[in-house]
Design a protein around this nucleic acid. Structure first.
Lengths: 113, 113
DNA sequence: GAGCTAGTTAGCCATTTAGCGAAATAGCTC
DNA sequence: GAGCTATTTCGCTAAATGGCTAACTAGCTC
């Protein structure tokens, strides 16, 4: 886990992982439900989920037998938007996430890893 | 060159390449000028530039002996912002690039590859 | 505990990536 | 063309990635 931005962009570099994030946009899903949407094997999807989690883009919680994944949209928008607004501030603008940046050890949305 | 978004995010996954984009933000630079800012060898930087160019994030032009690279900010903002506004539309908003999306075979900003 | 379902971890293989130095190409100047 | 600078392409090696199957862990039910 060298650099957060690198982890995040690397996580986004795979179409399956981007699709997983889009699927999670509408609410949390079990690992199996996610895997069912793809032709890849369960373990493969599990590893994709691991990459996303390590990048801080999803969080997980147990629900009995299953593990439910959900999107951590702030983390995504923050890191990517941060880079975007550095390199091409003319084209992009952050809306409300911006202000949440400074307070580091604040609320309880610190994800898993 | 399977998927453009994948190419772009993969290109952004490397810190050196992100730094190159930031360096180009202020205007075009020769390959050697870029390479001089890093500890990596010339060939290594040259390949990073190749990755960025293939992703459509930079364009190049010859100036006598040298090759000048410049940022293609629209491409960057468009693809990344497009994904961002799909996955987390609450956090991010595109400003003016949006409207240029539809016209496909229009102006001359089609980059090199 | 046996048996079941849900997911992850552990090996394994093929491909890609990132780095390097050496060699090739492009363009300039004499 | 010789010689110079700038940059890329060529092999090479080491490490990471993505896929699979097989085996393990976690939790539930009987």
């Amino acid at each position: 886990m060298a650099d957060t931005a690198s982890d995040i962009f690397a996580a986004l570099a795979h179409p399956t992982r981007r699709q997983i994030l889009q699927d999670l946009k509408d609410g949390e899903l079990a690992a199996g439900e996610i895997a069912a949407k793809f032709s890849a094997s369960g373990p493969t999807i599990s590893r994709h989920l691991g990459v996303l989690r390590q990048a801080g883009l999803v969080s997980e919680r147990r629900d009995a037998n299953r593990i439910l994944y959900s999107l951590v949209a702030d983390n995504l928008a923050l890191s990517v938007g941060d880079f975007l607004s550095t390199v091409c501030p003319e084209q992009i603008v952050l809306r409300e996430v911006r202000k949440k940046r400074a307070p580091k050890a604040a609320s309880a949305s610190e994800a898993t890893a």
